[in-house]
Design a protein around this nucleic acid. Sequence first.
DNA 1: TGACAGTATGACCGATCGGTCATATGACTG
DNA 2: CAGTCATATGACCGATCGGTCATACTGTCA
Lengths: 226, 226
Amino acid sequence: MPKSTFFRLPEERRARLVHEAIVEFADRTYAEASLSQIARRANIPKGSVYQYFEDKLDLYRWLLTEEAPRLKREFVGKPSMEGDFWTRLEDFVERGMAFLVEHPRLARLSAAAADPTANPEVRGLHKAICEAGLKELRAVLEAGAESSALHAPDLDVATRFVATIIGPGLTDVVLKELGAELHEVLASDSLRKRLGPKRRRALAHQAVHFIRKGLGSEKPRRGKET
Amino acid sequence: MPKSTFFRLPEERRARLVHEAIVEFADRTYAEASLSQIARRANIPKGSVYQYFEDKLDLYRWLLTEEAPRLKREFVGKPSMEGDFWTRLEDFVERGMAFLVEHPRLARLSAAAADPTANPEVRGLHKAICEAGLKELRAVLEAGAESSALHAPDLDVATRFVATIIGPGLTDVVLKELGAELHEVLASDSLRKRLGPKRRRALAHQAVHFIRKGLGSEKPRRGKET
DNA sequence: TGACAGTATGACCGATCGGTCATATGACTG
DNA sequence: CAGTCATATGACCGATCGGTCATACTGTCA
C-alpha cells in the first residue's frame, strides 16, 4: 500500500504521478518498466516517489489492484440484469470491448495480470488477480448453468476457455479489426472513432455466438456435420 | 543468424550453450533473461558467446525461429490424415498437449511469441511468429470449412478464437489440472507421470468439443435453450 | 620454424536500474 | 523566537546488464 503521505499529496502532483505510472506500466512489462522514468516524466524527484510508495512493486500493486479496477468499475458500471443469460453475457462482453477501445491503457493494465514474469512477487500478484477474475466469471457462468442456458461438464475448464476468448482472444480480434498493433493503440488515449458501437456489438455477438454454439453448427439448415 | 563459428563448435560445448539458453529464455521474459547468466551457467565466457551470436536478440531469434520449431516438429511429427475434420483437430490438439507436458520448456519457448514487450525488435519477431502460427491454423480450419464440418462467418476471427483456446486456454487448464504453476513446471524436464495420455485425450476432447459445440447445447435431449 | 587465420578470453566500458540517505525546506506550535 | 515534525530533494550506492576489445592461444600450411 502507498504510504499515508501519498494520499495527502496536492491533487495535481498526485495525478501527474499516477498518470505517468499508468502510461509506463501500460506499455512496458513490470520488468521493463522503470521507476526512474516515471519519476522523470512526472517531474518528481525519484527520492520523493519513495516517500509515497515502499518500492516499485508497491506502486504497481496499487495500480493493478486498486486504481485500475476502480477506474474500470467506474466505466463499465453495474452488470445488466435484463434479458436471458446469453444476452446478458453479450452485453457484458460488449462493455469490456468498449473499455478496451475507450481506455486502451487501462485495459492493458488490467490485462497485465496475464503477463509472464520471473519475479516471484509479481507472479504472486498476477496470480491473485487472475484467480479473482476467474472466480467472478465462474459465478456468471454458474448462473447460466442454473438457468439451463449453459451446459458444461467441467465448469472450471469452461470458465478458463471463456476467459481466454473474451480476454486475449477478443483483444486480438479487436486489434486485427483496427489494423493496429497494441503499441500504436496504447499511444492514443482513445479509439472512439475507429471502432464504433455498432461494430463492437457485432464483434461481441460473434464472440458470444462462438462460446454458445461453437463452429460446428452454424446454419442448422439441412445435413448435419460429419 | 548465428555466426559461422557457432556451427563449427564442438558438439558438447554448443549443446551446453543451447541448453542453458533454452532454460533461461523459457522461464524469463526476453527482457528479464540475461546473456551473462546463460554464459555463466554454460561455463562459457561471455566474450565467447559474442563470437557465436551477433547479440542477445540474435540468439533469441535463432532459438525461437529455428531451434524450438525444429525440436517441436521432431516431437509432434506429421499431422494425422485419418478420420474426419474434428477427429483430426482433436488429434492435433492432443499432440500439442503432449508436447507441453513432455517438454514444458520448449513449449513455453514456443509460446513466448505471445509475450508483450516494449522492445520493438522483439515485438516484430514475436509478431511474425504469431502470424505464421495463425496462418497455419487458418489453413487447417479452411479445410474444415471446405468439408462443411466447420461454419464461421469470419474465418479470421474464428481462427483467433480457436488459437487462444488451444494455446493459452488449454495451457491454463493443464496447469490447473496439474495443480502447479508454470514456474514449477518449468523446473522439471517432463511431467509424464502427472498427466498421462488418457487424461490428455479427455482434455483435448473437451477443448475440441467446446470449439465445435460451444456451451449452449450440451445434451440436445429435449427443450432447446432459451 | 614462422606466419597467419580462426578462436578464446576476461578485463573493461557506459548505461541504467532500484533504492538509500543526509540534508534542506517549510509549516505549525509554544 | 526556537523547536518539532512532515516532507522534498538529488547526490550517491552497489549491482547488473549488453556489448567491446586487446591480447593470448592453437592448429595449419609453407
